[in-house]
Design a protein around this nucleic acid. Structure first.
Lengths: 226, 226
DNA sequence: CGAAAAAGTAGAACAGATTCTATTATTTGT
DNA sequence: ACAAATAATAGAATCTGTTCTACTTTTTCG
């Protein structure tokens, strides 16, 4: 699941990566205990508000002031939780990826070859993202722009490794396999970008991803049988 | 409200491309004729100023006000030539790519395999870009972000096709070869980004590009001999 | 040449992200 | 329960991209 201590509501500290380097511990006892009446899921409310706004007009519509307002917190508070707009975007993306992961758990790719399975989840992710083009655009772009680590590419690479590689994990994978899965992931991201730019159709992406996957994952382990 | 009629009469002389989609002709008589005394290479001065600033502190340092000042033009004029900061960035990039191309002409890759040649030019490009990390960062990121066509990925793909594919061109290439070259190009761009984020060393990039190229360009035509 | 068009200029104005301030809750430790 | 610490809040202020205004200088051309 989410490697993120999400539940913890410590504003500044912890957090989803964020630009902050601070890795300090925070002294927040609760995780479920309702603070006073309706206090403390501020983080969740913020992310929701942000996602909602982004689904509409993309990042532009997701203005910090507006998000704060809509989430019912002060601008300053918003900035306490998310030091920059980017951090907020990353949080929103996190949720999207969670969704994809659970979808995969629910209905794992069935193709017989590693490449086939990889294409399966990549296209599923594509469809999922494309359901909210504005949001997708905003998110993908922002992530690529991010100064620092964003869980996106890495999580996707991991997913590919696990699903396509028949149980390989970041641990057990060889350096080369890791590199290959990573390459496929970046090809996909790039195609996604092109689609957002209106230069690719769904079919074209599928074709290209298939072509790349077939080469890149050619010698990934095939599952024993079924 | 208004979609800038940009192409119209703009000083957007010829063109290192820029974001402008307008391929229209411009009514600019001169191209070399010195206007009055020192007028008209304003564009060049602007791009130079921009590049210089970007080489220092990256995009942030390349503030429109500062660029204008340094180029000795009014802010309004700067915006007449480059409707947005992005356009300016694209122009700067254009020059960088030109540099790479001429470097390749001067000393074409010598490796015997398509993959080898591809790696050669990609690493050469990497080194070239890394000479000015701030600039590279600014440029790469901006280009990826660009709403519209930017000559970057395409020009690189083309280059790869020509150089690695032993004379193949966008014309003669099969759909698949085109896709494969494109994939390699996106892998490279992604690695470059990771390097800029400080998550890759030169060697790691080389390794990963080699791994990807070996798979992706496996069945590209090999030169007759030599 | 002389007027209309095009290009420049200085600088104000606007917008949205981020920062800062002063003040008011809440929480926590004891 | 109470003082110190922490979290929030409203809102002003700052910064930088972009737009707009009012003029001045060049260029184009009949």
């Amino acid at each position: 699941m989410t490697p993120r201590p999400a539940g913890t509501s410590a504003p500044s500290t912890a957090g989803p990566s964020t630009t902050e380097g601070t890795s300090g511990v925070h002294t927040e006892p609760a995780s479920a205990a309702v603070r006073t009446r309706s206090q403390h899921q501020r983080r969740k409310r913020i992310v929701q508000a942000a996602a909602a706004l982004a689904s509409r007009g993309g990042v532009e519509a997701m203005q910090m002031r507006t998000v704060a307002e809509r989430a019912g917190v002060a601008l300053g508070t918003l900035y306490r939780y998310f030091p920059s707009k980017m951090d907020l975007v990353v949080a929103v993306v996190g949720e999207e990826i969670d969704l994809l992961e659970s979808s995969i758990e629910r209905r794992p790719p069935s193709a017989g070859t590693p490449a086939g399975r990889a294409v399966d989840i990549l296209m599923r992710a594509t469809r999922g993202l494309m359901r909210e083009p504005e949001l997708a655009d905003a998110l993908i772009r922002s992530l690529i722009m991010a100064e620092v680590d964003t869980p996106f590419g890495d999580r996707m690479t991991d997913l590919l490794l696990r699903v396509a590689g028949n149980g390989i994990t970041a641990e057990t994978a060889t350096d080369e396999q890791f590199a290959l899965a990573g390459s496929l992931s970046s090809v996909w991201v790039h195609e996604l970008l092109e689609m957002l730019r209106g230069r690719r159709t769904h079919e074209q992406i599928q074709r290209r991803v298939e072509i790349a996957a077939a080469r890149l994952l050619a010698d990934f382990p095939v599952p024993p049988s079924t």
